[in-house]
């Protein structure tokens, strides 16, 4: 019945059923490489935090998978099975709407940050495009709540780095439009956060930021 769909970095995703509905199960398995003290803490804490912050995000009318069941002891979450290509795959196609997708991501991240939610892992593999063209944000394992500009800056720096490294050919157009979408929500604090992103990048080893 259960079939492994993906072995992610920290969890295994399998297809399953929640009563009659098709669903996925995300289990954070034990990692042999790290001591049990660290392992227990990470698996249980991240599972609870993930479910908690996903629910909070949902209340902001941001598209996230619906959670059906959480089992902290087993580090498992059963949630909606979201179907569609990830932004990562979408960006490697030809003739795509880079402007629109960049703006939508920016708008979404702006809404998160305005409400002091930090996703913590904004990569292009953690966003799924639904059939209705909504972007569904997944994987809140590293998410937390914070009103610090530094934390919001780190979130953006990560996405910028991934766009630049993995999608270099469309980096500029996607990121410029991301900023436009982000600014439309963040308004007055936009400039301040962007200057913090630059500061964070400058802390990188041997960095020179244009």
């Amino acid at each position: 019945m259960e079939k492994i769909i993906k072995i992610g970095a920290e969890a295994t995703i399998s297809s399953t059923k929640w009563f009659e509905i098709s669903a996925i199960s995300k289990i954070r398995h034990k990692k042999k490489y790290r001591p049990i003290e660290i392992d227990n803490l990470i698996r249980v804490q991240r599972t609870i935090k993930e479910a908690n912050i996903m629910n909070k995000t949902r209340l902001l009318k941001i598209d996230v998978p619906i959670i059906y069941f959480v089992d902290p002891n087993n580090a498992e979450i059963i949630m909606e099975n979201v179907d569609g290509p990830r932004i990562k795959e979408y960006l490697s196609n030809k003739n795509i709407d880079c402007k629109g997708i960049g703006w939508k991501i920016g708008h979404m991240v702006g809404k998160l940050h305005k409400n002091n939610i930090i996703h913590g892992d904004l990569t292009t593999s953690n966003m799924i495009i639904r059939k209705n063209n909504n972007i569904c944000l997944i994987d809140f394992g590293l998410a937390n709540q914070s009103n610090k500009l530094e934390d919001k800056g780190v979130d953006i720096k990560l996405l910028k780095g991934i766009l630049n490294s993995a999608h270099n050919d469309v980096f500029k157009i996607v990121f410029d439009n991301f900023l436009a979408g982000y600014e439309s929500i963040m308004k007055n604090s936009f400039e301040q956060i962007i200057s913090i992103v630059k500061q964070i990048e400058m802390r990188g080893r041997y960095a020179r930021v244009d």
């Binding site: 990470i42 913590g120 780190v154 720096k157 990560l158």
Partner: peptide, 8 residues
Amino acid sequence: PYSVKGND
């Protein structure tokens, strides 16, 4: 303190 921020 265990501090992982995305891939950083």
